[in-house]
């Protein structure tokens, strides 16, 4: 088998590759569902119904998609520049910590001032958390994959310490949780009485901003150039290390916004289960979106629909909701294979 780079990708492949990828992951999921003794089509129907079948389901899916858009954008922008940021989880919690640190009464400001401030402060914390590993990469050549992964564990332990120590809610009946953020720090709901909050709109806005920066500014051009060919970028006079830093600040900040948004929009306080792996799911989202910022929004909704739908399905059909995790992971792998065929032509023999 030999792979030959394509000069041009036929248009149908841009459509066919993702569809084939999703179809392949559905087939694998169907086999697993059958093994669990259930009827695949019935199960998929229940997943779809649980994710999109009612206003409640749909809003729940969008609510779940919100943090994924942030972490997905964070991964997409970093991966574009070949900065392997796997530390979305740590950055998310970094943002969340800042949100409760400043949002629980420390800054008695009105909402229009306080909310943007919390997002900026949170993004700053996340940016710093990725800046460390990035500097270790550019200065010492330390692989950022491992350092960002290890930071996830360190930060989670640190948050656990904060929640049992300095940030512990005195009224929390001993649970490791922070106090609730003040009224002015809470994001308004988009529809009265429903869980979907302003964070979703902010996330979409960030996707638009990232798209604009990527496609229409020199910053974006440099970030892509550095990822595509660092040597050529350096030769063209770009300060590659500095561009990497910019990418890190941007990416870390975006992931942290997921934490701020979850605290101020949905949960109201910080607990150790604030994120059920949103940082890691963000990587899948970014890959499914082919690293395109606007694609991230669509991919986030798709992944969120899987999770929300599977939760509803498992209550009725008795198939474990982990099937959603399996489908999302297989979709990631089938997608990267699918994308390969848009770049290469395969010669058998």
């Amino acid at each position: 088998m030999r792979l030959e780079p394509r000069v041009e990708t036929p248009f149908y492949l841009w459509i066919a590759a993702p569809i084939a990828a999703i179809a392949a992951s559905l087939v694998i999921a169907a086999l697993l569902v059958m093994w669990a003794g259930a009827e695949p089509f019935a199960v998929f129907g229940l997943v779809a119904k649980g994710a999109l079948g009612s206003q409640f389901a749909l809003l729940e899916t969008l609510t779940r998609a919100t943090p994924l858009i942030f972490t997905g954008l964070a991964a997409a922008i970093a991966f574009r520049a070949r900065l392997w940021n796997i530390g979305g989880e740590a950055q998310l919690y970094g943002g969340a910590v800042l949100a409760v640190l400043l949002g629980t009464g420390f800054l008695p400001l009105p909402a229009p001032v306080l909310v943007p401030l919390l997002f900026i402060a949170g993004a700053f914390a996340g940016a710093l958390l990725l800046l460390g590993p990035t500097m270790l990469k550019t200065r010492f050549g330390v692989d950022e994959v491992v350092t960002t992964l290890l930071l996830n564990f360190i930060i989670l332990l640190f948050v656990s310490f904060l929640l049992e120590g300095p940030l512990k809610d005195p009224m929390g009946l001993g649970w490791p949780q922070s106090r609730r953020v003040i009224e002015a720090a809470q994001l308004p709901r988009i529809i009265e009485g429903k869980r979907l909050h302003l964070g979703f709109v902010i996330a979409i806005a960030m996707a638009a901003i990232v798209w604009f920066v990527n496609a229409r500014t020199t910053h974006g051009y440099e970030m892509r150039a550095v990822g595509f060919n660092p040597k050529a970028a350096r030769f063209a006079g770009m300060k590659v290390d500095w561009v990497m830093m910019k990418v890190a600040l941007f990416s870390g900040g975006l992931a942290a916004m997921a934490g701020v948004s979850e605290v101020t929009g949905l949960k109201g306080n910080l607990t150790l289960d604030l994120s059920p792996g949103f940082g890691y799911s963000g990587i899948v989202v970014a890959m499914l979106a082919m690293l395109h910022p606007l694609g991230v929004v669509a991919a986030s909704i798709f992944v969120a629909a899987m999770f929300v739908g599977a939760d509803a399905m498992s209550r009725q059909a008795g198939v474990p909701n982990y099937i959603a995790h399996v489908m999302v992971a297989t979709a990631l792998l089938t997608m990267v294979v699918g994308m390969l065929f848009t770049r290469f032509r395969v010669h058998w023999r």
């Binding site: 792979l3 093994w35 994959v145 990587i283 198939v319 995790h325 399996v326 999302v328 297989t330 990631l332």
Partner: peptide, 25 residues
Amino acid sequence: GLSQHVTGIGITLLATALTSYVYRV
């Protein structure tokens, strides 16, 4: 010749998810 970073993370996610699923079933 896929990205070893992305594939590796994918394998970890898949293996972990499959384990959880099989355990529950």
